[in-house]
Design a binder for these strands. Structure first.
Lengths: 358, 358
DNA sequence: CTGAAAGCGCTAACAA
DNA sequence: TTGTTAGCGCTTTCAG
């Protein structure tokens, strides 16, 4: 029943009648330790089940060997893959991960940033909630390197690694146009975040390039769920609700672009229920290429996001900062924005109407 | 360019010509501090941007206020929701989360357990890889409370919070039978883990209950992907590959149960390509009720898993142990297994053949 | 009400 | 090669 205090260096030292210091160096495989002594120390450590105390070590070494990862919602499949990629890379480089979930609440994010400062993490990767950057500013000023993931935070001068959503949106829109689409819609989540803004911009610009205007109601917003953690995360429901109305508005030659594949799925279902055949009467293009998308009927044309690449590039950039003198972000050249290219995956959810691109 | 050392209690003390001790107590809102002194201390702390050092604090207090979460793969939607629920609950109770991803490798899991011991976390929640429990045994013996999530680890006497997969499987099988199914298949991942075993057992037992045997090839195994972190996580692909063969074997009145909704989706697609109408010619039942399942064509009948409940029950149980004297698991009554009930969600992917249950 | 002293477990000078 | 001393930043006795 004894909570059995952890074995410490001192325990080993006393048991062997050595100094704590010697034991420390023996276990750390430092020079200046007799070969026999080292052997004995290691044996005793083993026997006593010694486990080094990372906190004590970090305290004196002034480095935590820990990174903070601030995520809005792990149930977003894109973010889930980011977590995996980051954790893996961090692990192989010797860093542990402190995970903070914000549920898209600035309050939570503030607390997360504060908590990470208290822990003295060596660096932070964050998908920012956006709106409210003072806490990130503080973090940075306190000397903790920060790299933003996926979403930009205007007004904060830090490195960002994300996806070129603008390009993705352009590619999708171009594709729709190339199949002969005459009526385009973009369905996006009702969040004021950069990925959404970029996709809208790409959509509009592409139409403009082709001399087509985008009527105001061409961009449709779907409500985002309130409580991310409890509600089903990426729910096709809201887009599905919209779908019936859209189906009525959409004439022949209509293609609807969706901000993510769940929305696309909701739309597909709604269209089908209205008697519209997706891929024949109407087109749908998703965003994200979630694992289910290739197996829908019809298989969903969508934009694949380079999740592992974003994760790896993000942590690599962060570790650069961490390991070069722990300074804050932004070298001489100022903060760098790295936007990785998405890839249009053409499947069968957009009808080949007429005068294709060829 | 100065890395600007963090402000410490001492800095405040010196600046105010007080002792470190007084400053500490003033900030901790302890009694025995002059009201005016307290005010000055707080103001100065604010001015200097003081952030308490959690590691130092934890070192002396001998508690880390940190929990370890060991997960095989965050891209599993069920696990993602577990993470959310656990993080939220932990956060509101003042605990930070250290996340370790094992990718279903015992080696990684061993390292994760070791790392968590080094950090001296207050407790650990783990979805065990299974096969190899010595590291968990060590953790436990070192006094760190451990609660297993979702998968059992035979041979290790610890608390477990999971899902009653046996019941879920029985419910699904009963449902299939009740619709008049005459030929049943179960498609399961090729992993030797308790959820799979339980579902198979439920399937077999239910058939036996009805005086039906399950031929050996009624249980079909799909290969699991090798590298979880890089490959697409839950891929309908392998089940899809199987689907064509199954379609040929399956006569009228056949229902295929799948171990998860992704597999179900892969099967649906394969059946459709073979000219079999899911929900009419053949039945498919999923497991997991992923967000996409309700929107498939036809909507997928599946088993809903109580993800947030498992997460919350898991961390609650862990915190019980953590907060009652930090003893290892298992009170007088021995380790408790809590299996939360899943719920059959009947949609439209199983044909109502004949003699329904009513 | 405040200060001095000790110590959490470890590492890094510097001596011996 | 080994031991001594000091200190990371904090909290907790125990005196004053």
């Amino acid at each position: 029943m004894s909570p059995r205090r952890r074995t410490t260096l001192r325990d080993i030292a006393e048991s062997l009648d050595l100094s704590v210091n010697t034991v420390s160096r023996a276990l750390a495989d430092k020079d200046a330790v007799g070969v026999e002594t080292r052997r004995r120390v290691k044996a005793e450590a083993e026997r006593l089940g010694y486990v080094p105390n990372t906190m004590a070590r970090s305290l004196v070494l002034q480095n935590a060997m820990t990174l903070g990862l601030v995520i809005t919602n792990p149930s977003n499949p894109f973010y889930a893959r980011l977590i995996s990629a980051i954790e893996e890379r961090g692990r192989t480089r010797g860093y542990s991960l402190m995970l903070m979930v914000t549920e898209d609440s600035v309050d939570n994010e503030r607390r997360a940033a504060e908590e990470l400062m208290r822990w003295g993490v060596d660096g932070v990767l964050a998908i920012p909630v956006q709106h409210g950057a003072e806490h990130w500013e503080r973090l940075r000023k306190s000397g903790v390197p920060l790299v933003l993931l996926n979403r930009d935070l205007p007004g904060l001068d830090v490195d960002l690694v994300g996806v070129d959503y603008y390009a993705g949106s352009r590619a999708a829109t171009e594709h729709a146009l190339s199949t002969g689409a005459t009526e385009l819609y973009l369905v996006e989540e009702d969040l004021d975040i950069s990925p959404v803004a970029e996709r809208i911009r790409g959509f509009r610009d592409t139409l403009a390039t082709h001399g087509l205007g985008a009527p105001d109601d061409a961009v449709v917003r779907v409500a985002s769920p309130e409580d991310v953690s409890v509600s089903v995360p990426f729910d096709p429901g809201p887009a599905y609700e919209l779908g019936a109305g859209l189906a009525r508005r959409a004439g022949p030659g209509a293609v609807v672009l969706a901000g993510n594949d769940y929305h696309a799925l909701g739309l597909c279902r709604a269209f089908a229920e209205q008697g519209l055949r997706v891929g024949v009467d109407v087109g749908v293009i998703g965003h994200g290429d979630h694992p289910f998308s290739a197996y829908l009927a019809p298989p969903l044309t969508t934009v694949r996001l380079p999740a592992p690449e974003v994760g790896r590039a993000g942590i690599d950039r962060l570790l650069e900062h961490v390991e070069t003198a722990g300074g804050s972000g932004g070298d001489a050249a100022g903060p760098a924005h790295t936007l990785l290219p998405p890839e249009l995956i053409v499947r069968a959810s957009v009808p080949e109407t007429a005068g294709g691109e060829g």
